[in-house]
Structures are given as C-alpha cells and as structure tokens.
Design a protein around this nucleic acid. Structure first.
Lengths: 215, 215
DNA sequence: CAAAGTTCTAGAACAATATTCTGGAACTTT
DNA sequence: AAAGTTCCAGAATATTGTTCTAGAACTTTG
C-alpha cells in the first residue's frame, strides 16, 4: 500500500513539505528513524532488513541511504537521537530540584517517567549493542560529556553543602540510578510489574546511598 | 593460516578427539563459541560475518551450520552458555554465606569477580540484544526460573529471621546488584576505573538498601 | 522570474554475506 | 566388519545490504 504510484504524475515523488525548518518535521528522516525503532524493537536489529524499515517508513532504498550511510548508520543515529532526548529531559527535571534529596529523587522519577512514556525507546537504549562509527563515537562522547557536566553542575553544590556524601566520582550515578535502571530493564523484558510500584522505595534507597553523614 | 590443507590426507578432516564425553572438550562446538565471543566483542554481532567466526575457529561453514542453525543461533547459544555459567558461579558463592549481610555482600563480590575474570563475557551478556528463538526463549526462562528459585532459597530464611526487610519480590535483585551492575557496565565501556575500588562501598550500600529494620 | 545548483527520492544494478546442499570421512553400534 | 550416525568441507544458491543512474522538487542566484 506504500508506493504503488508510477513516477509519471506529480503525486508523491520528490520532497513533500520542506518550507518549515522548525525543530520538528524533517519528516522523511524522522519517519525512517521511527520506523526503524519499531522494526528493531519487534524484530531485533540483526534480523531487521533494510526492506522492512523502508516499507514501514514508506520510502525508497535510495532515500534511506541518502539520509543514512548504512543500516548500522540508522541504528547509530537512532541511538544518538534517543540518548540526547533522554539526557535533556533528565537534566531539565533535575534542575528544578531545591535540595539534594529532591535532586536524587528526581533522577529516579525522571527515569521511570521517560521509560513509561516511551518503552520501546528505553528498551532500545538498553539492549542495543552498537558498532559506532568514528563520527558516531565522537558524538556519543560529546553527548556523554555534556550530560556529565550538567549533572555535575547540579550536584556539586549539594556535595559542598554536605547534603551529599563525598564519594568516588564514578560512584554517584550507579548508586542513584543503578537500581531503578536494573528494575526498569526487567520490567521492559516482561519480568516484573510496573516500576510505579517501586519508584518511591527506590528513590529512598538512592537517597540513603548517597546522602551526607548528617542526614 | 587456518585450513590450507587439502582434503586428501588424513591430517585434520573429520573428528579429532571425541573419546572423552567429560564436561569440558566437545572441542569444535566450543571452539566456535569461543571464536564467536572474540569476534562479537571486537566487531559487534551485526558486523561479524560467518566467515570471521569460521576462520578464527578454524572450521568450515558446514561444520558451523551443523552445530548451530544460523548466526543468530550462535549468538543465542553463546548467551545461554554464559548466563548459565554466571548463574551457577553466583549461586555457589551465595550458598557459603552464614548470614544475611554475608549473602548480600557475596552477590556484589561475585559479580565483580566474574566480570573481572571474563570481561568479554560480561560485556556480551550486557550488551547483546538477542532475538531468541522459541526454543532459546524457553531455555532462557528455564535458566532464569532456576536461578530465581536458588536465590530465593538462600535469601528467604534471612527474610523470615528479620535480617532482611520485607520488600516487593522483584525489588531485591535491583536493589542489591543494580548499582554494581551499572558500575561494571560503565567500567566495561571504558568509562570508569576498576570496580575493585568501589566493591566495598557498593556492598555496604546494598546491605543498607535491604537490611531489616533492626539492623 | 528563469536558469543553474542542490537536495531528495526512486528503483534497478551490483556486491557481500548468510544459508543450503552434496559428498564423504570419522566415529559408534550391532 | 557392516550399517548407521555424527561431523565436516566447500561449492552452489538465496538473501540482503549497498551503490548507481536518472529525475523530481525545492533553493538560490542573475
């Protein structure tokens, strides 16, 4: 039902609507990523064929390869797009926190909220083992650094104030989000009930794990 | 350099040593899995070709397809083999614990020890998104149930004794092993120093998260 | 506003890779 | 020791990823 039209008329060949360069609506490129997520989630990246994506996105092979270098390229771009959205959402949420405990809890709550809102995306972020290209790898590092820096900016004051304990730098994230991450992973695999049930419990545990000596 | 020999002589065609049905040494099948782990770890499952595995294992295509149905079949078998070994190792270790705290700490220590001993294996268990066949899926569930049951058998007494808090069933594992799992994942990705440094800290945090009210 | 340039799309041609198939060797069983 | 089974090799085949050519829609420039 996708592209039975011959290349004669002017129906749907070439660009459709491009006048708008606003944040949302590059359309084709986005369609492809969306379709890819669906395919990858249901079939797995390995078993998903270019044809599957192309068919679901309603585009041609050429179009797909114009926007992305390869199948791995699609997988990579999708991962980077999702992680960027996830990071931004989390940071925005953390910034609203008034004290250390609120900040810690916002991480747990944010993680659950984003996962519940887009389970396929979180499953993809979790499960996917991507062979990053040099460029993709650089972009990934860039995003990671930006996120780390943001988190650091938010939490450092609380550590200085003694609200949070002084721990090895790399210990904070696992201590705070490790449990909920682990739980959500199981939930997404169908092995546990909704994370809403344990959200408060895990937030409290996270706070206990990193709170300062006086609290 | 692998198989330049013609099929004339009697050098290396057919079976080599099969007299021993002991736990270790099915040789060919094992060779293939080992080679696959190396390839998958360095190149990623997607980009690894049958030829790569075959070449590294020093076997023919036919042999590979005799033991496994497909490339995904190799990936699946490898995953199941590794998770089984991991589960057994962990259970054996947990069983030695004399009290609740020892049991909890043994999980963290065991997780680190296994990961340090075979980083490639743990990286594969983590990263790999497998499209399980019906049979593989069943086997996976079987292994999971067996493990859960084992863990339950070990921890239940401590819960009854009040050493461990009474929590939602699915909360224990994430609370205990979530943080170290998360940390090890980062370490394996080259984003954090050796887990030995935080092992004690994380064990303590795990204990705090699940210990009973009186402790 | 027309012409040249650019981006985007389509689908056929091509290349790489996964899988099947045939023949035969080594081992096992009777 | 003969029949049956498991295992292995490599060529043949099928599937799927990627490249290529042509042309449509949009953008820019004179």
């Amino acid at each position: 039902m996708q592209t039975p039209k011959p290349l004669s008329g002017k129906q749907s060949t070439g660009r459709q609507q491009t006048g708008n360069q606003q944040p949302e609506k590059p359309s084709r490129k986005r369609d492809i990523l969306l379709a890819a997520l669906d395919c990858f989630d249901s079939t797995g990246v390995e078993l998903t064929t270019i044809g599957d994506i192309q068919r679901l996105a309603g585009c041609s092979v050429g179009s797909l390869y114009h926007h992305f270098h390869s199948k791995e390229g699609v997988a990579e771009a999708l991962w980077l797009t999702l992680i960027e959205d996830f990071n931004d959402t989390m940071l925005r949420r953390m910034k609203k926190a008034k004290d250390g405990k609120e900040a810690v809890c916002s991480v747990v709550a944010g993680y659950v909220a984003w996962s519940v809102r887009q389970p396929k995306s979180m499953r993809y972020l979790h499960a996917r083992d991507i062979a990053f290209s040099p460029a993709g790898s650089a972009r990934k590092k860039e995003l990671l650094d930006h996120y780390i820096q943001g988190v650091f900016g938010i939490f450092a004051p609380f550590v200085r104030a003694g609200e949070l304990a002084e721990l090895p730098l790399h210990a904070y994230v696992p201590l705070i989000s490790g449990p909920i991450e682990s739980y959500v992973r199981r939930w997404l695999a169908g092995e546990a009930p909704t994370p809403r049930q344990v959200e408060a419990l895990f937030a409290q545990a996270a706070w206990n794990a990193v709170k300062g000596p006086g609290y």
